[in-house]
Computed example of a mutant assay.
Amino acid sequence: MASLLSHPLTSREARESLGDTLQRFRTEGLTAEPVTFGAQRKPEAVMIPYEAFEAIAPLLEDLATAETARARIRAGGASPLSETAEALGLDPADFQ
């Protein structure tokens, strides 16, 4: 996998090879190498098989949630866990 990630295609090359890439993704599934591409070979985007996307989608959602939480904490908008538990009608002692 590292070889393709370290040698990105130009956007034009990626576009021109799209049919071949899709066929390879269909054939190889999760084991297919991703395709990295961007303007002037600068890595800007990655194509992966849809099966791989489905596998990592929950992780991407977790990362987005974590970033939102970090931003709220930095902004001072986060409340202590005990207050959140009480607001949900839970007893904080149950979680100790």
Rank of each mutant, 00 (worst) to 15 (best):
M1G: 02
M1Q: 04
M1T: 08
M1K: 08
M1C: 04
A2D: 13
S3D: 06
S3P: 03
L4P: 00
L4K: 01
L5C: 04
L5K: 05
S6D: 07
S6W: 05
H7V: 01
H7M: 05
P8S: 13
P8F: 11
P8D: 14
L9N: 03
L9F: 04
L9Q: 09
T10Y: 01
T10V: 03
S11K: 13
S11R: 10
S11I: 10
S11C: 12
S11Q: 11
R12N: 11
E13W: 12
A14Y: 05
E16W: 01
E16S: 02
E16Y: 02
S17R: 12
S17N: 10
L18C: 09
L18R: 14
G19E: 12
T21W: 03
T21R: 07
T21M: 14
L22G: 07
Q23F: 06
R24I: 10
R24Y: 04
R24H: 05
R24D: 02
R24S: 04
F25D: 00
F25C: 00
F25P: 00
F25A: 00
R26H: 11
R26T: 12
R26Y: 07
E28W: 14
L30Q: 12
L30H: 08
L30N: 10
L30C: 07
A32Y: 04
A32H: 01
E33M: 06
E33K: 05
E33G: 02
P34E: 02
T36C: 05
T36S: 07
F37K: 01
F37P: 00
G38C: 10
G38T: 09
G38Q: 08
Q40I: 06
Q40W: 10
R41D: 03
K42Y: 09
P43L: 11
E44M: 06
A45D: 09
A45W: 11
V46N: 03
V46G: 02
V46C: 09
V46K: 03
I48K: 01
I48S: 00
I48D: 01
I48Y: 04
I48C: 01
Y50M: 08
Y50S: 04
Y50D: 04
E51M: 06
E51F: 08
F53H: 07
F53C: 03
E54D: 13
E54G: 11
A55F: 02
I56G: 01
I56W: 06
I56D: 01
A57W: 10
A57M: 09
P58F: 08
L59C: 01
L59E: 05
L59G: 03
L60H: 01
L60P: 01
D62F: 14
T65K: 10
T65C: 05
A66K: 14
E67K: 15
E67I: 15
E67S: 15
A69L: 15
A69C: 13
A69G: 08
A71T: 14
A71D: 08
A71S: 13
A75M: 10
A75I: 10
G76V: 09
G77I: 09
G77E: 15
G77D: 11
A78F: 13
A78T: 13
A78S: 13
S79A: 12
L81G: 13
L81H: 13
S82F: 05
E83H: 08
E83A: 08
E83V: 08
T84A: 07
T84L: 07
T84C: 00
E86W: 12
E86N: 10
E86H: 09
A87E: 15
A87I: 15
A87M: 15
L90H: 05
L90P: 00
A93T: 02
F95E: 06
Q96M: 14
Q96H: 11
